[in-house]
Amino acid sequence: MENIKQKYSQMVKKASPDSPILKNCIKAFFVGGLICVIGQFITNFMLTSGFDEKTSGTLTSVILIAAASLLTGLGIYSKIGKFAGAGSIVPITGFSNSVTSPAVEFKQEGFILGVGAKIFIIAGPVILYGTLTSVIVGIFYYFLGR
């Protein structure tokens, strides 16, 4: 049976069309780049409005996140994502999309067990492992870094 499985997995590989990776990468590059340019524009605007660098960075994130949430609710972000792939997954707007999409989708199951329990079904791991990594970074920094 292992032999058959191995042989079949070769057959499957040959029969399955690959994703058009070059085309996908070009689209991801342009859309991802564009989102960053918009981010740079917002940051510059905040800086010239008199905010310090840290606050400007946070405000940029907040604005991008809110905009992506709105586009997700309107059903537009999923269309951008279908076109851009990683180009709209990797920027912070993709994080926002991954929080908003289950929130909207699971509303049908109520605000506690639906929206409440399932809002982090995709983004939860990001917060978990991001926080864990930051604690590990902190431990190293505390004992070795300073």
């Binding site: 069309p17 996908n24 279908k82 851009a84 709209s88 997954i89 699971f106």
Partner: peptide, 17 residues
């Protein structure tokens, strides 16, 4: 989609298979 994959609003691509 909701049961087996992802929320409909998630911006991801479906592979050609």
């Amino acid at each position: 989609e909701r049961q087996f994959r992802f929320p409909l609003e998630l911006g991801n691509q479906r592979p050609p298979t």
